[in-house]
């Protein structure tokens, strides 16, 4: 089971109402390499991965949900005071006419989240390489958002998330090595 704690993993502050930046951030909410995809990917792979890696997948999946909450907090804070004119100017009018000011799991272009973003091959090495690639893609996406964002407070939180992707990728690489060592040991004995 999971237990919720009423706090964010890292502080989220916004400099000013900025629905356009929120539109970009939605990519990491419901996009292919976003936090929802990450959390669901790792959680789902736990059941067929060797025991030595289950703990890692569980812990990283759990952290991804904390990241998802941070992205949601950013989008909420950036849009909560937006006027319809600002929403239109930001290119969020298509979202607004369907969802109002509520959040929705879609990418920055408005494409709804889809399960095909997640791979599950049942082969431990294939799945872990998928996870490493996913973390690297998420890191790149955070960098792109930082590149076009002019909000220093949001960028501080985004840099934290970008660094977490690097750490996760590193841990997944170590998991690959652990499984390879295990496989080689089995051949020897």
């Amino acid at each position: 089971m999971w237990v919720y704690e009423k706090k964010l993993m890292y502080p989220v502050k916004v400099s000013e109402c900025n629905p356009r930046l929120a539109k970009y951030l939605i990519e990491q909410y419901g996009g292919a390499d976003g936090e929802l995809a990450a959390a669901l990917r790792y959680m789902n792979q736990r059941y067929s991965i060797p025991d030595k890696v289950i703990g890692l997948l569980t812990d990283i999946a759990t952290e991804e949900f904390a990241h998802l909450e941070m992205i949601a907090a950013m989008v909420y804070k950036l849009t909560k005071d937006a006027t319809p004119e600002q929403i239109r100017a930001a290119g969020l009018e298509d979202h607004y006419v369907n969802h109002g000011i509520s959040l929705f799991y879609s990418n920055a272009a408005g494409v709804p989240f889809q399960a095909s973003y997640i791979a599950s091959k049942g082969d431990p090495i294939a799945d872990l390489y998928e996870d490493i690639a996913a973390e690297e893609k998420a890191r790149a996406t955070y960098q792109y958002i930082i590149d076009i964002s002019d909000d220093p407070d949001i960028n501080d939180s985004l840099k934290f998330l970008r660094e977490r992707e690097i750490v996760h990728a590193q841990r997944f690489r170590e998991a690959v090595e652990i499984l390879k060592e295990d496989r080689n040991a089995q051949k020897i004995f």
Partner: peptide, 22 residues
């Protein structure tokens, strides 16, 4: 105080993942 908790939790998050593979 809340930031102090976030800081200590960050250390634990890092150590937990590290210990998963070490």
């Amino acid at each position: 105080l809340l930031e102090d908790l976030q800081a200590v939790d960050f250390v634990l998050a890092e150590l937990t993942l590290y210990l998963d593979t070490h």
